[in-house]
Amino acid sequence: MFLRYIVSRLLQTALVILGVVTISFFITNLVPADPARLIAGRLATAETVENIRSQLGLDRPLVEQYWRYLQRLFQGDLGRSYQQRTEVKTLLLSRLPATLQLSLGAIVFELLIGIPLGILAALEFGKFWDKAIMVLAFIGVSAPQFALGLILLYLFAYLWNMFPLGGYGSIHHLILPALTLGISGAGWYARMMRSSLLDVMNADYVRTGVAKGLGRSKVIFKHALRNAVLPVIAMIGLDIGLLMGGVVVVESVFAWPGIGQLAWQAIQIVDIPIIMGTVLLTAGFIVLGNLLADLLYPLADPRLRYG
Protein backbone atom coordinates (compact mmCIF):
# COMPACT_ATOMS: atom_id res chain seq x y z
CA MET A 1 0.00 0.00 0.00
CA PHE A 2 2.65 2.45 1.12
CA LEU A 3 5.02 1.29 -1.61
CA ARG A 4 2.39 1.69 -4.29
CA TYR A 5 1.67 5.17 -3.03
CA ILE A 6 5.34 6.11 -3.18
CA VAL A 7 5.76 4.75 -6.70
CA SER A 8 2.75 6.59 -8.01
CA ARG A 9 3.88 9.79 -6.33
CA LEU A 10 7.35 9.45 -7.83
CA LEU A 11 5.83 8.98 -11.26
CA GLN A 12 3.75 12.09 -10.81
CA THR A 13 6.84 13.96 -9.73
CA ALA A 14 8.73 12.87 -12.80
CA LEU A 15 5.86 14.05 -14.98
CA VAL A 16 5.82 17.43 -13.29
CA ILE A 17 9.57 17.80 -13.82
CA LEU A 18 9.13 16.91 -17.47
CA GLY A 19 6.49 19.61 -17.73
CA VAL A 20 8.80 22.15 -16.13
CA VAL A 21 11.63 21.21 -18.49
CA THR A 22 9.35 21.48 -21.49
CA ILE A 23 7.92 24.87 -20.62
CA SER A 24 11.23 26.40 -19.60
CA PHE A 25 12.98 25.04 -22.69
CA PHE A 26 10.54 26.75 -24.99
CA ILE A 27 10.47 29.96 -22.98
CA THR A 28 14.26 30.35 -22.85
CA ASN A 29 14.56 29.62 -26.54
CA LEU A 30 12.04 32.34 -27.30
CA VAL A 31 14.25 35.01 -25.76
CA PRO A 32 14.91 37.47 -28.60
CA ALA A 33 18.69 37.24 -28.50
CA ASP A 34 21.12 35.02 -30.33
CA PRO A 35 23.62 33.28 -28.04
CA ALA A 36 25.85 32.57 -31.04
CA ARG A 37 26.36 36.29 -31.64
CA LEU A 38 27.42 36.86 -28.06
CA ILE A 39 29.93 34.02 -28.33
CA ALA A 40 31.25 35.11 -31.71
CA GLY A 41 32.43 38.56 -30.65
CA ARG A 42 32.40 41.90 -32.38
CA LEU A 43 34.47 41.08 -35.45
CA ALA A 44 32.69 37.89 -36.41
CA THR A 45 31.32 37.47 -39.90
CA ALA A 46 27.76 36.30 -40.47
CA GLU A 47 29.29 33.02 -41.57
CA THR A 48 31.06 32.52 -38.26
CA VAL A 49 27.87 33.19 -36.33
CA GLU A 50 26.02 30.70 -38.53
CA ASN A 51 28.78 28.19 -37.92
CA ILE A 52 28.50 28.55 -34.16
CA ARG A 53 24.74 28.24 -34.37
CA SER A 54 25.09 24.96 -36.16
CA GLN A 55 27.74 23.70 -33.72
CA LEU A 56 25.42 24.40 -30.82
CA GLY A 57 22.51 22.94 -32.75
CA LEU A 58 20.67 26.25 -32.62
CA ASP A 59 19.93 26.09 -36.34
CA ARG A 60 17.77 22.99 -35.92
CA PRO A 61 13.99 23.18 -35.53
CA LEU A 62 13.10 23.93 -31.93
CA VAL A 63 11.29 20.65 -31.48
CA GLU A 64 14.35 18.73 -32.58
CA GLN A 65 16.54 20.75 -30.18
CA TYR A 66 14.08 19.95 -27.44
CA TRP A 67 14.18 16.26 -28.21
CA ARG A 68 17.97 16.26 -28.15
CA TYR A 69 18.02 18.12 -24.87
CA LEU A 70 15.71 15.49 -23.36
CA GLN A 71 17.81 12.64 -24.68
CA ARG A 72 20.92 14.10 -23.10
CA LEU A 73 19.08 14.87 -19.91
CA PHE A 74 18.10 11.22 -19.55
CA GLN A 75 21.78 10.36 -19.76
CA GLY A 76 22.47 12.85 -16.99
CA ASP A 77 24.07 15.34 -19.36
CA LEU A 78 23.06 18.95 -18.73
CA GLY A 79 25.36 20.26 -21.44
CA ARG A 80 28.06 22.89 -21.24
CA SER A 81 27.78 26.60 -20.62
CA TYR A 82 27.90 28.58 -23.86
CA GLN A 83 30.05 31.28 -22.33
CA GLN A 84 32.27 29.49 -19.84
CA ARG A 85 32.47 26.13 -21.69
CA THR A 86 32.32 24.37 -18.33
CA GLU A 87 29.85 21.57 -17.71
CA VAL A 88 26.63 22.92 -16.27
CA LYS A 89 26.68 20.07 -13.76
CA THR A 90 30.03 21.29 -12.40
CA LEU A 91 28.77 24.85 -12.15
CA LEU A 92 25.57 23.81 -10.37
CA LEU A 93 27.47 21.65 -7.93
CA SER A 94 29.87 24.48 -7.16
CA ARG A 95 26.96 26.80 -6.35
CA LEU A 96 24.64 24.35 -4.61
CA PRO A 97 26.33 24.36 -1.17
CA ALA A 98 25.95 28.13 -0.87
CA THR A 99 22.26 28.06 -1.76
CA LEU A 100 21.54 25.06 0.47
CA GLN A 101 23.32 26.74 3.34
CA LEU A 102 21.27 29.87 2.81
CA SER A 103 17.99 27.96 2.57
CA LEU A 104 18.69 25.89 5.66
CA GLY A 105 19.75 29.01 7.54
CA ALA A 106 16.48 30.63 6.54
CA ILE A 107 14.51 27.62 7.77
CA VAL A 108 16.24 27.79 11.14
CA PHE A 109 15.18 31.42 11.48
CA GLU A 110 11.65 30.66 10.30
CA LEU A 111 11.24 27.99 12.96
CA LEU A 112 13.06 29.87 15.71
CA ILE A 113 10.91 32.94 15.22
CA GLY A 114 7.70 31.45 13.87
CA ILE A 115 7.03 28.55 16.21
CA PRO A 116 7.39 30.33 19.57
CA LEU A 117 5.34 33.27 18.32
CA GLY A 118 2.66 30.92 17.01
CA ILE A 119 2.50 29.09 20.35
CA LEU A 120 2.28 32.34 22.26
CA ALA A 121 -0.50 33.57 19.98
CA ALA A 122 -2.48 30.37 20.45
CA LEU A 123 -2.08 30.42 24.23
CA GLU A 124 -3.12 34.07 24.33
CA PHE A 125 -5.91 33.38 21.84
CA GLY A 126 -8.10 36.40 21.27
CA LYS A 127 -6.09 38.62 23.56
CA PHE A 128 -3.67 41.42 22.80
CA TRP A 129 -0.58 39.29 22.15
CA ASP A 130 -2.47 37.06 19.78
CA LYS A 131 -3.57 40.02 17.71
CA ALA A 132 -0.19 41.74 17.85
CA ILE A 133 1.59 38.59 16.74
CA MET A 134 -0.83 38.03 13.87
CA VAL A 135 -0.23 41.58 12.65
CA LEU A 136 3.51 41.03 13.04
CA ALA A 137 3.20 37.84 11.02
CA PHE A 138 1.60 39.81 8.21
CA ILE A 139 4.33 42.39 8.35
CA GLY A 140 6.89 39.62 7.98
CA VAL A 141 5.02 38.13 5.05
CA SER A 142 4.63 41.51 3.37
CA ALA A 143 8.19 42.76 3.74
CA PRO A 144 9.94 43.24 0.41
CA GLN A 145 13.08 41.10 0.77
CA PHE A 146 15.37 43.34 -1.23
CA ALA A 147 14.58 46.42 0.86
CA LEU A 148 14.68 44.45 4.09
CA GLY A 149 18.05 43.00 3.15
CA LEU A 150 19.50 46.40 2.35
CA ILE A 151 18.15 47.91 5.57
CA LEU A 152 19.51 45.04 7.67
CA LEU A 153 22.85 45.50 5.97
CA TYR A 154 22.79 49.20 6.68
CA LEU A 155 21.92 48.79 10.35
CA PHE A 156 23.69 45.62 11.47
CA ALA A 157 26.66 45.57 9.15
CA TYR A 158 27.40 49.21 8.41
CA LEU A 159 26.20 51.27 11.37
CA TRP A 160 26.71 48.75 14.17
CA ASN A 161 29.42 46.65 12.59
CA MET A 162 28.01 43.40 13.93
CA PHE A 163 28.06 41.38 10.71
CA PRO A 164 29.94 41.40 7.42
CA LEU A 165 28.54 43.52 4.62
CA GLY A 166 27.66 40.55 2.51
CA GLY A 167 29.71 37.82 0.92
CA TYR A 168 30.02 34.14 1.60
CA GLY A 169 32.10 32.16 4.01
CA SER A 170 31.57 31.81 7.74
CA ILE A 171 28.41 31.43 9.79
CA HIS A 172 28.77 35.16 10.42
CA HIS A 173 28.16 35.85 6.74
CA LEU A 174 25.10 33.64 6.78
CA ILE A 175 23.08 35.34 9.49
CA LEU A 176 21.81 38.46 7.73
CA PRO A 177 20.87 36.87 4.39
CA ALA A 178 19.27 33.91 6.14
CA LEU A 179 17.32 36.24 8.40
CA THR A 180 16.15 38.30 5.42
CA LEU A 181 15.00 35.20 3.63
CA GLY A 182 13.48 33.68 6.79
CA ILE A 183 11.37 36.58 7.99
CA SER A 184 8.49 36.10 5.58
CA GLY A 185 8.50 32.36 6.23
CA ALA A 186 8.47 33.04 9.96
CA GLY A 187 5.17 34.83 9.46
CA TRP A 188 3.66 31.78 7.77
CA TYR A 189 4.98 29.41 10.44
CA ALA A 190 3.58 31.58 13.21
CA ARG A 191 0.13 31.46 11.60
CA MET A 192 0.34 27.74 10.98
CA MET A 193 1.59 26.97 14.45
CA ARG A 194 -1.18 29.03 15.96
CA SER A 195 -3.98 27.35 14.08
CA SER A 196 -2.48 23.90 14.52
CA LEU A 197 -2.20 24.36 18.26
CA LEU A 198 -5.71 25.76 18.45
CA ASP A 199 -6.96 22.68 16.58
CA VAL A 200 -5.24 20.37 18.98
CA MET A 201 -6.39 22.29 22.03
CA ASN A 202 -9.95 21.88 20.86
CA ALA A 203 -9.43 18.16 20.38
CA ASP A 204 -11.20 15.81 22.74
CA TYR A 205 -8.21 14.43 24.56
CA VAL A 206 -6.95 17.81 25.58
CA ARG A 207 -10.35 18.88 26.78
CA THR A 208 -10.70 15.63 28.64
CA GLY A 209 -7.28 16.08 30.17
CA VAL A 210 -8.14 19.54 31.36
CA ALA A 211 -11.52 18.35 32.58
CA LYS A 212 -9.84 15.55 34.54
CA GLY A 213 -8.06 18.22 36.47
CA LEU A 214 -4.64 17.99 34.95
CA GLY A 215 -3.27 21.52 34.79
CA ARG A 216 -3.98 23.32 31.54
CA SER A 217 -0.37 24.25 30.91
CA LYS A 218 0.76 20.75 31.78
CA VAL A 219 -1.60 19.24 29.25
CA ILE A 220 -0.59 21.74 26.65
CA PHE A 221 3.14 21.37 27.08
CA LYS A 222 3.11 17.60 27.61
CA HIS A 223 0.72 16.50 24.94
CA ALA A 224 -0.83 19.19 22.80
CA LEU A 225 2.35 20.89 21.77
CA ARG A 226 3.98 17.77 20.44
CA ASN A 227 0.99 16.92 18.32
CA ALA A 228 0.60 20.48 17.12
CA VAL A 229 4.21 20.93 16.09
CA LEU A 230 4.44 17.81 13.94
CA PRO A 231 2.20 18.95 11.08
CA VAL A 232 4.00 22.27 11.08
CA ILE A 233 7.36 20.56 10.85
CA ALA A 234 6.06 18.54 7.93
CA MET A 235 5.71 21.80 6.04
CA ILE A 236 9.48 22.21 5.97
CA GLY A 237 9.56 20.09 2.86
CA LEU A 238 7.34 22.55 1.04
CA ASP A 239 9.45 25.35 2.33
CA ILE A 240 12.83 24.18 1.00
CA GLY A 241 11.53 24.35 -2.52
CA LEU A 242 9.93 27.74 -2.05
CA LEU A 243 13.12 29.16 -0.57
CA MET A 244 15.32 27.74 -3.33
CA GLY A 245 13.08 29.35 -5.92
CA GLY A 246 13.18 32.73 -4.23
CA VAL A 247 16.87 33.17 -3.48
CA VAL A 248 17.67 35.29 -6.55
CA VAL A 249 16.94 38.55 -4.80
CA VAL A 250 18.62 37.84 -1.48
CA GLU A 251 21.66 36.37 -3.22
CA SER A 252 22.00 39.47 -5.32
CA VAL A 253 21.65 41.85 -2.36
CA PHE A 254 24.20 39.95 -0.27
CA ALA A 255 26.58 38.92 -3.09
CA TRP A 256 25.90 35.30 -2.16
CA PRO A 257 27.47 33.00 -4.77
CA GLY A 258 24.53 30.61 -5.13
CA ILE A 259 22.22 29.14 -7.74
CA GLY A 260 20.14 32.31 -7.97
CA GLN A 261 23.11 34.46 -8.94
CA LEU A 262 24.20 31.86 -11.46
CA ALA A 263 20.74 31.89 -13.03
CA TRP A 264 20.51 35.67 -13.04
CA GLN A 265 23.88 36.10 -14.74
CA ALA A 266 23.02 33.40 -17.26
CA ILE A 267 19.74 35.12 -18.14
CA GLN A 268 21.67 38.34 -18.87
CA ILE A 269 23.75 36.62 -21.55
CA VAL A 270 21.22 33.97 -22.70
CA ASP A 271 23.43 31.12 -21.58
CA ILE A 272 20.60 28.67 -22.16
CA PRO A 273 22.21 25.50 -20.76
CA ILE A 274 22.82 27.24 -17.43
CA ILE A 275 19.34 28.74 -17.32
CA MET A 276 17.83 25.32 -17.99
CA GLY A 277 20.09 23.70 -15.42
CA THR A 278 19.20 26.13 -12.65
CA VAL A 279 15.47 25.93 -13.36
CA LEU A 280 15.66 22.16 -13.40
CA LEU A 281 17.58 21.98 -10.15
CA THR A 282 15.26 24.39 -8.39
CA ALA A 283 12.15 22.66 -9.70
CA GLY A 284 13.65 19.37 -8.57
CA PHE A 285 13.99 20.69 -5.04
CA ILE A 286 10.47 22.07 -5.09
CA VAL A 287 8.83 18.79 -6.12
CA LEU A 288 11.01 16.71 -3.83
CA GLY A 289 10.11 19.08 -1.03
CA ASN A 290 6.43 18.64 -1.82
CA LEU A 291 6.90 14.90 -1.87
CA LEU A 292 8.66 15.00 1.47
CA ALA A 293 5.87 17.10 2.96
CA ASP A 294 3.25 14.68 1.66
CA LEU A 295 5.12 11.74 3.10
CA LEU A 296 5.82 13.39 6.43
CA TYR A 297 2.37 14.76 6.97
CA PRO A 298 0.60 11.45 7.48
CA LEU A 299 3.38 10.37 9.83
CA ALA A 300 2.75 13.48 11.85
CA ASP A 301 -0.96 12.87 11.92
CA PRO A 302 -1.75 9.17 12.20
CA ARG A 303 -5.39 9.81 11.44
CA LEU A 304 -4.47 10.45 7.84
CA ARG A 305 -3.92 7.44 5.68
CA TYR A 306 -2.03 7.01 2.48
CA GLY A 307 -4.54 6.78 -0.32
Binding site: A40, G41, L43, I52, Q55
Partner: peptide, 22 residues
Protein backbone atom coordinates in the same frame (compact mmCIF):
# COMPACT_ATOMS: atom_id res chain seq x y z
CA UNK B 1 39.29 26.99 -35.84
CA UNK B 2 35.48 27.26 -35.82
CA UNK B 3 35.27 24.41 -33.30
CA UNK B 4 37.00 26.63 -30.72
CA UNK B 5 34.21 29.21 -31.06
CA UNK B 6 36.64 31.94 -30.11
CA UNK B 7 35.26 35.49 -29.90
CA UNK B 8 38.68 36.58 -31.20
CA UNK B 9 38.56 34.67 -34.47
CA UNK B 10 37.75 37.84 -36.40
CA UNK B 11 41.05 39.47 -35.45
CA UNK B 12 43.03 36.99 -37.57
CA UNK B 13 40.96 36.69 -40.72
CA UNK B 14 43.51 38.94 -42.39
CA UNK B 15 46.06 36.09 -42.40
CA UNK B 16 46.35 34.44 -45.83
CA UNK B 17 44.49 31.20 -46.05
CA UNK B 18 42.53 31.80 -42.82
CA UNK B 19 39.20 31.75 -44.59
CA UNK B 20 40.03 28.53 -46.47
CA UNK B 21 40.98 26.94 -43.16
CA UNK B 22 37.75 28.09 -41.50
Amino acid sequence: NPDTRSPGQGFFLVISGAQDFI
